[in-house]
Amino acid sequence: MEPDMESENVSGEPPVRAEITLIVNGREHRLAVDTRASLLDVLREELGLTGTKKGCDHGQCGACTILVGGRRANGCLALAVAHDGADIVTVEGLAHGDELSPLQAAFIERDAFQCGYCTPGQLCSATAVLDEAARGWPSVVTPDVAAEPELDEPEIRERMSGNICRCGAYVNIVAAVRQAAARETAGRRPTERQAAGREAAGHGGAGQGPTEREAAR
């Protein structure tokens, strides 16, 4: 695999390979990757999972958003070699068989795309947005950063700002995320919401593991 042609390897040094294991959408893969390869390139080129898109390759557009250990990340800036053992979900893994995830269904109901190129990233990102809000994570537009946030429109716009849509389908994307958020909140009992808030209250070690949604799968 040619990991990246943008700045070619003028040094003439041979590529370095490393063995890693990735769990992608529940399936384990053993791979020998070039140390320079990003998760994005490995998913697309080695595993044929082309749902995840490359927009900018610089962390600026979010088209490459995937879930790593249940948390959203830009695949283009993540070195595969640094993610040995990681549990990854891509857009291909969001549905349960033929049953779309609530967000996928909401995107269709609300017509939340035009060309669709940004959509896999939007879906993975929004999946994590719902989870982060359920954990009580604030955003920069949360009026009181110490309080429990409500996922209203300004919050959704801010939290989704790492995902650019060149077609400008933002109005319907926000509507779709709002709809999925409202359904999720309605489906969750108040006690569970409080528990989620308390969980976010503890001193966070990094990578608090997969979300409940992931673990339940």
């Binding site: 962390g59 979010g62 958003t65 959203r72 990340a73 830009n74 990102s125 994590a128 947005v129 982060e132 954990r135 009580g136 994570w137 604030p138 955003s139 920069v140 950063v145 110490a146 939290r159 989704m160 700002s161 790492g162 995902n163 976010a200 209250a201 503890g202 001193h203 966070g204």
Partner: peptide, 23 residues
Amino acid sequence: ADRTVRERYPVLAEAVLAGASGQ
């Protein structure tokens, strides 16, 4: 997201949240 940081050092939580993207 740390509760203590948010309560005792809101300037720090806000600054981190003002940077980059969720990803």
